[in-house]
Nucleic acid binder design. Structure first.
Lengths: 125, 125
DNA sequence: ATAGCAGTTGGAGTTAACTCCAAGTCAAGC
DNA sequence: GCTTGACTTGGAGTTAACTCCAACTGCTAT
C-alpha cells in the first residue's frame, strides 16, 4: 500500500504518517526498490492503534517510548505492560473527570433552559 | 483576594489567570486604587468553571465566545445555551471514544499479562 | 525522451495555550 | 526616605504536534 492509500484509509495525512515514522511510532515500514514506502496490513493495524491512542490523549513521546521498548525485544514485555497500565490509569482519571464535566454542562444547560422559559432571566455567568 | 491567593486556591498560575483575563475568559475583575486585581468569591467560581471546561478540552476560543455573548446581555441567552449544547455534544463523543480506548487498553494489557505468563512470548506490537 | 504525477527529504512555519521576562509601580516596615 | 516584596504591563519565548515547502527522484503514458 502506498502512503496516499493508507492516508485515505486511516484518515491521517501523508505528512503525519511520515512524521509518526520519523518520531518512532511505526516499526520499520518497507520500501520499494525506488525507495517508496510500501505499507502492509500489519502496518495499518499499528497505525490505527497509534491513531486511537493519540486521540485518547497519549503523547507522541509516550508512544515513542513504547515502540522503542518494543524494538529492544521481549525482555521489555513487562516494561511495556507497565507503561500501558500507567497510561490507562491516567486515561481512567480523565474519563471520570469528563463524566463530571458532562454532568455539570447538563446542569448548566438546564439552568439556561429555565432562565429562557422564565422570561429571559439573566444568570451570574 | 489577590492574584497569588486565587492562584494557590484554584491551582492556576498567576500568569495563566492574567492570560485568561486578557483572552476574555473572566468578566471584569475589580482593581484596588493602586491597580491591583482584587478577586471576589464570584470570580473564583467563574475561574473554577473555566478551569473545569478547559481541562475537559473546551478551547480558550470557545470560552472567549461564551463570555463575549455574556457581555452582550440577556438577548444572547439562547446563543449561549446553544454554544454549551454544541460543546456538550462534542464532549459526549470524546467520552464514548475514551470509553472504547479504555477497553482496548484493558484488553491489550491482558494480552501482555498472558504473554508474560507464557514464558515471555513476544507480540506483534 | 519528455511531461506529469506521486513519491522522497530536510527543514521551516504554524497553532494553541501557556510561561517567562524586564522594566516599572506601590504599600509597608525599619 | 529607603528597601523589600508582591504586584503591574507588553511582549518575547516555549512546547507539542503537526503542516507546509522547495528541490529532487523515478515511474508511466504519450
Amino acid at each position: 500500500m502506498t502512503i496516499s492509500e493508507v492516508s485515505k484509509r486511516c484518515n491521517i495525512s501523508p505528512d503525519t504518517l511520515r512524521y509518526y515514522e520519523k518520531a518512532g511510532l511505526l516499526l520499520d515500514v518497507n520500501r520499494t526498490a525506488g525507495g517508496i514506502r510500501d505499507y502492509t496490513e500489519q502496518d495499518c493495524t499499528q497505525i490505527e492503534f497509534v491513531k486511537c491512542m493519540r486521540s485518547a490523549g497519549l503523547s507522541v513521546e509516550v508512544l515513542r517510548k513504547y515502540f522503542e521498548l518494543f524494538k529492544r525485544g521481549k525482555h521489555t514485555l513487562k516494561a511495556r505492560r507497565d507503561l500501558l497500565a500507567t497510561e490507562r490509569k491516567a486515561l481512567q482519571e480523565r474519563f471520570l473527570e469528563l463524566q463530571g464535566t458532562l454532568k455539570r454542562l447538563d446542569y448548566k444547560i438546564s439552568v439556561y433552559d429555565q432562565a429562557i422559559a422564565s422570561k429571559n432571566k439573566e444568570l451570574k455567568f
